[in-house]
Design a protein around this nucleic acid. Structure first.
Length: 478
DNA sequence: TGAAATGTTGGGGCG
DNA sequence: ACGCCCCAACATTTC
């Protein structure tokens, strides 16, 4: 009476409803299937950084679940195949919400049921199912704040413990982790990443606890400071389900209880978790979110195309220190501080007028926390084309943003070391520094560090001018 | 979870 | 003493 537990984006044993229920019922065969884009039909496949994380996340899961079977290929084929091989009578999994995953799971579930095999899916990756939260008139929310209000009115279920005992069925037909080829070969751009990150369930719990203890105080303000350690850095753990939002929710509340100020910071932190929920809500109801403007009027925006400019942005050679610092942090660590994500995204879209899809694709390939819902919702948020998005005319000034949020320049100095000799005000805008200051700092603009690839004031004007087309489109439609 | 342009106010220098 | 101008400093509007 074996139950297959199909792991996907839920690489944990605690608060794992599919695993918990299966373990209660009897013998369990846990499996993870690496799907390649060519058979999954996924138009937004796993990026390189995500693969690195996945490798280590699976390694950690294998330690707590020694019988975890690894397969590679088409889940539509492999799940039924495994059912037959293991003579299983049920398959359990925790739900995913990406459009291609929904289609795939529905098809697999129908096939299993037709074959007389039990198939059950569970809520595990969200506080609330996208369809559990709706407006008074019965539709999806399109604005964050009322969504968050509605979410707060609901109770968040208590997390499940890890199963006391799991009777794991042996299976010999799986692959070794190395056979999944998830790690970069040469060049090994992820060298040293294991000192930055601890993928896996234990790492996730440790990160949450460290954050609550050392980072949560004054989170409301300090979370905007890329030079300080006051963000949780839980995003990759959440993406791969090494910790559940329920666990984060309850542990945060427990930690802050009774301390008014800390409770406020905790609430602010949970509201960021709620942005993740809102993104999933949007993706569920608007499955074209990853590729199409949510506001169709933005189709009229006159985007530029420039491989060379895109490359400068990707490699952190724009000549704007805060932008370059962010892009280099991303490349070197698989992560970027959220405040800086907004700045670099605004720069790509508004200063360079390159389509947000280019940014979405680059982030998806390079972020360890790349997440279809968060990534596409956030890019459209910055572009102004999304639901409850920032207005298009809100254009970040990369110089004042740097001065505001990296006041001492420590973040810039860390990631753009060729500017480390410059003192604070000049560091934000080297091109305006007097020549003797540059000389003193051993900065040669155009050589050791690029000149600004665009002029801020001009770029801003051009971006706003382009927006006129969008407005015109809106008028025509109305 | 902006920035820049424009408008308003009030203190101080000055004839 | 007074009006005038300049211009921070702050507020409001616009993009």
């Amino acid at each position: 009476m074996t139950t297959i537990v199909w792991f996907r984006q839920d690489l944990r044993v605690s608060d794992n409803p599919a695993l918990f229920k299966a373990a209660q019922e009897g013998p369990v065969l846990p499996v993870f299937i690496l799907e390649e884009a060519e058979h999954s039909g996924d138009t937004h496949p796993l990026g390189g950084a995500s693969k690195w994380w996945l490798h280590h996340g699976l390694a950690a899961l294998q330690e707590s679940l020694p019988g975890l079977v690894l397969l590679r290929g088409d889940a539509r084929v492999l799940v039924p195949w495994l059912v037959e091989q293991a003579d299983a009578n049920a398959v359990f999994w925790n739900r995913c919400y990406e459009p291609h995953a929904i289609d795939r799971d529905a098809e697999i579930k129908a096939g299993l049921k037709a074959a007389g095999v039990r198939a059950e899916s569970f809520k595990a990756s969200l506080l609330h199912e996208p369809w559990e939260i709706e407006t008074k008139s019965g539709g999806p929310f399109k604005v964050y704040s009322p969504f968050w209000r509605a979410a707060q009115a609901k109770t968040v279920e208590a997390p499940l413990p890890a199963p006391k005992k799991i009777d794991i069925v042996p299976f010999s037909g799986g692959l070794r982790l190395a056979d999944l080829s998830l790690l970069p070969a040469k060049p090994n751009w992820a060298a040293g990443w294991e000192t930055l990150w601890q993928p896996g369930e234990a790492g996730a719990r440790g990160r949450l606890r460290a954050f609550l203890k050392d980072g949560l105080q004054n989170y409301g303000d300090l979370r905007n400071r890329p030079d300080l350690p006051n963000v949780s850095r839980l995003s990759p753990h959440l993406h791969f389900g090494e910790i559940s939002p329920r666990q984060v929710w309850h542990e945060t509340r427990q930690h802050t209880q009774g301390n008014d100020r800390l409770e406020k910071d905790g609430q602010k932190f949970l509201s960021e978790i709620a942005w993740r929920e809102f993104s999933y809500h949007l993706l569920y109801y608007f499955p074209t979110l990853p590729s199409e403007n949510w506001r169709p009027t933005f189709d009229a925006y006159p985007w530029r195309e420039s491989e060379a400019d895109l490359r400068k942005w990707q490699t952190g050679q724009t000549g704007y220190p805060i932008v370059d610092a962010g892009m280099r942090e991303l490349w070197q660590t698989g992560y970027m501080h959220n405040r800086v994500r907004m700045i670099v995204a605004s720069f790509l879209i508004k200063h360079l007028r390159l389509h947000w899809r280019h940014g979405e694709a680059w982030f998806r390939d390079t972020l360890v926390d790349a997440d279809l819902a968060n990534n596409s919702a956030s890019w459209q948020w910055v572009a102004g084309s999304g639901a409850d998005a920032a207005p298009y005319f809100r254009i970040f000034n990369p110089i004042t943003q740097a001065a505001k949020f990296d006041p001492d320049g420590a973040y810039i100095r860390k990631w753009v070391p060729e500017l480390s000799g410059l003192a604070a005000p000049h560091l934000f805008e080297p091109s305006k520094a007097p020549s003797f200051v540059l000389e003193e700092a051993e900065v040669v603009l155009g050589q050791s560090y690029p000149l600004p690839m665009v002029d801020h004031a001009e770029a801003r004007k051009a971006a706003l001018a382009g927006y006129e087309d969008v407005k015109r489109m809106g008028q025509n439609a109305a």
